[in-house]
């Protein structure tokens, strides 16, 4: 199993959710986060005065899927969250060792 963590633009959340649900991925956890990339935020120029917005609000989506579903999820998120401009975000994939359902007592070990 893999955990996919996607950092996206807040306004793209609806589109990402919709497209993931269409492919059958309903379960997810989302967080309001702030962050910056290599460009170190956004620098607004106002009559020569620099106004740097350091940490920009983003949404983080965490979703745990089977190994063979990873590519579909990545492509779905990438397609629905992309604008082509700086600040579209990143997707990280990491291994998950154990998943436990608290109610169902389901115990899945990789």
């Amino acid at each position: 199993m893999k955990k996919i963590t996607a950092i996206i633009r807040p306004e793209k959340l609806e589109a990402v959710k919709e497209n993931l649900a269409e492919k059958g991925f309903n379960a997810m956890t989302i967080f309001n986060v702030k962050g910056r990339g290599e460009q170190k935020g956004i620098c607004l120029q106002f009559r020569g005065k620099r106004n740097v917005i350091d940490m920009i609000p983003k949404i983080q989506i965490d979703i745990v899927v089977k190994n063979d579903e990873v590519e579909t999820v990545i492509q779905t998120i990438q397609r629905s969250a992309r604008t082509g401009k700086i600040g579209d975000g990143k997707i990280f994939v990491s291994p998950v060792e154990i998943v436990v359902g608290i109610r169902t007592e389901e115990y899945i070990e990789e």
Binding site: K34, I42, L44, N51, I53, D54, M55, I56, P57
Partner: peptide, 21 residues
């Protein structure tokens, strides 16, 4: 305002203040 200023919001872009940053 410019597109970038609109994107980050007028609080930061016009007033240098914010509820969320």
């Amino acid at each position: 305002v410019t597109e970038e200023e609109e994107y980050v919001g007028l609080d930061v872009a016009q007033h240098g203040e914010s509820m969320e940053l």
